[in-house]
Amino acid sequence: MNTLTAPLPSSGHGLDPRRMAGALGHEALGEWRNLVRMPAFSIPTLLFPVGFYAMFAIVLPFADTTQAAATLLVNFTIFGVFAPGLFAFGVGLANDRDEGWLRLKQTAPLPIPVMMIARMLVAMVFALAVVVALFAVAATAGGVRLERSAWLILAITGVLAVIPASAIGMALGAWMKARAAIAIVNIAYLGSAMLSGLWFPLHLMPDPVQSIAPALPPFHLAELGRHATGLEAGSLAVSLSWLACVTIIAAALAMPGLRRQERK
């Protein structure tokens, strides 16, 4: 019996569906290990939102009312959970393309969507870690009091926010060189957070900014957060459908980038 070379299967090719879950798990585990071992990713991802939140909500007296405390938590939760997906895909995918890892994956019998889903799951785990850290600070030092259901819905919103963030990251990472991606994804991240009113209340911003915000996904994610916590917010349906649109458009933009022909 051959041990080095498998016999040709008589029919049916591809990964056994039963093994697909295992492949997804291993893929996610690999992603996870790679990201946690990368301090340039894991440390800012966890510490930035917590640090900024602590600065605004605890050090600076901005959480002076209940609403303000909840608003700050919502804003920095969205700020925090938007990063893992955006960077894991935006920078990570550009890197993988530059380094040839993506090419090797494309030759392996792993469906590429499985790889993307695995990466998104890991980004969700990071988002959950951000949520846990922020909630801990908010609950102990931030003076935030929410209904149990509101905490839960905000956490779920935070984890699911990884989906649009990943799609946008994918669109950026599929087309950009790794070195450019780091700069551009950072600008996109901080810029959209700022323009979405995650750092400073929108009503303090100049009028043009106020009119840009409703186009930006973080703004709508924050809207979902405000809905979750009973704060004043716009239409839930509008926010959800806009986020769905952005996600689909970004994913569609990413596809040809991933399939791009080799140039040598």
């Binding site: 040709l8 090719h13 591809g14 990964l15 690999g30 992603e31 290990r33 790679n34 071992r37 990368m38 890197n95 993988d96 530059d98 380094e99 040839g100 890892w101 090419r103 090797l104 030759t107 392996a108 019998p109």
Partner: peptide, 17 residues
């Protein structure tokens, strides 16, 4: 892809694994 084993030039892999 299932039947092929591939080794490409300059394949980067996640270097931290």
């Amino acid at each position: 892809r299932c039947l092929s084993g591939v080794m490409l030039q300059n394949s980067g892999v996640p270097e931290l694994l």
